[in-house]
Nucleic acid binder design. Structure first.
Length: 212
DNA sequence: CAGTAACG
DNA sequence: GGGC
C-alpha cells in the first residue's frame, strides 16, 4: 500500500477563494513559536478594548511595519506600539516565510505581508464574527496560522447574518482567504481547556495581512 | 457587533 | 447555540 497516495497536501476549499492547508506549518512550528516568544519579549501581549468599550478576551501583540490596535478611537493599524511608544518588532523571517509560502500554495503568488497580528487564547477566550477591513488593498489575502490547542473556526459570508460554517483547526493548520471572500465574516468559538506539548494551556493564532 | 446579556 |  502506497500511503503517499493518501497523505496528500491538497488545499481544502472552505469557500470561494478560501482554502484550508492542513498541517502546512508543521515542519516549522518550533521556529514560529520561538519567533513569537521573541516578539512577545519586545512587545508584550495585552488585552485590547473594542471601540464599544469591551475588553477583548484574547491577548494581542504584533510585528512587522504595522501593528493592529483597537481602543475607544476605533480599529486601526499603528506604526508604534502604544504601550512602549516604540516601533513594533520586525517580522521574524520564519513568520514571513510561512505566510508567503502558504499564500503561494493557495494561488497568491505575490503576497507581501507588512503586519502579523499575534493573538494568544487562554481557555475561555474567543473571537466573535468580524471582517478584516482596515487594510487598504483587498486584493491581498489573509493568511492565518494556528498553533497549540485546537479550536473551531467560523467562516461566514459577506453579511453578518450569513450562517458561518464550522471548521475545526489544529496545530499547524493554515487558512488562506482572499478574492471573493476577502471580506468574509469570521471568528472562533470559545477555546476549551487542554494541554498542548508545545504551547501548554494556550492557542496562538498568527494573522498575516498587507495593511498598506 | 474583533462585544455582552438575556432568552428560547 | 444563534440572532439581534
Amino acid at each position: 500500500m502506497n500511503h503517499e497516495l493518501f497523505s496528500d497536501d491538497t488545499p481544502l476549499p472552505i469557500g470561494d477563494g478560501a482554502l484550508l492547508l492542513r498541517g502546512f506549518a508543521l515542519g516549522v512550528d518550533d521556529a514560529l513559536l520561538e519567533a513569537v516568544d521573541a516578539v512577545s519579549a519586545e512587545a508584550p501581549a495585552r488585552r485590547l478594548c473594542t471601540p464599544g468599550g469591551h475588553r477583548m478576551s484574547v491577548e494581542t501583540t504584533s510585528c512587522g511595519r504595522w501593528g493592529w490596535v483597537s481602543d475607544a478611537a476605533g480599529y486601526r493599524y499603528a506604526e508604534c506600539d502604544p504601550v512602549s511608544g516604540r516601533a513594533w518588532p520586525a517580522m521574524p523571517e520564519p513568520l514571513r516565510r510561512i505566510a508567503v509560502a502558504a499564500a503561494a500554495r493557495a494561488g497568491h503568488a505575490h503576497f507581501d505581508p507588512d503586519t502579523c497580528l499575534i493573538n494568544r487564547y487562554a481557555p475561555g477566550a474567543r473571537m466573535g464574527l468580524h471582517q478584516d477591513r482596515n487594510e487598504h488593498d483587498f486584493s491581498q489575502p489573509i493568511v492565518s496560522v494556528s498553533l497549540g490547542l485546537p479550536i473551531v473556526f467560523q467562516f461566514g459570508g459577506l453579511q453578518r447574518s450569513d450562517r458561518p460554517q464550522r471548521v475545526p483547526l489544529a496545530h499547524g493548520d493554515v487558512l488562506v482567504w482572499g478574492g471573493p471572500t476577502r471580506l468574509a465574516f469570521h471568528g472562533v468559538l470559545t477555546l476549551k481547556a487542554g494541554i498542548h506539548p508545545l504551547t501548554g494551556a494556550s492557542r496562538i493564532n498568527l494573522t498575516f495581512r498587507r495593511a498598506r
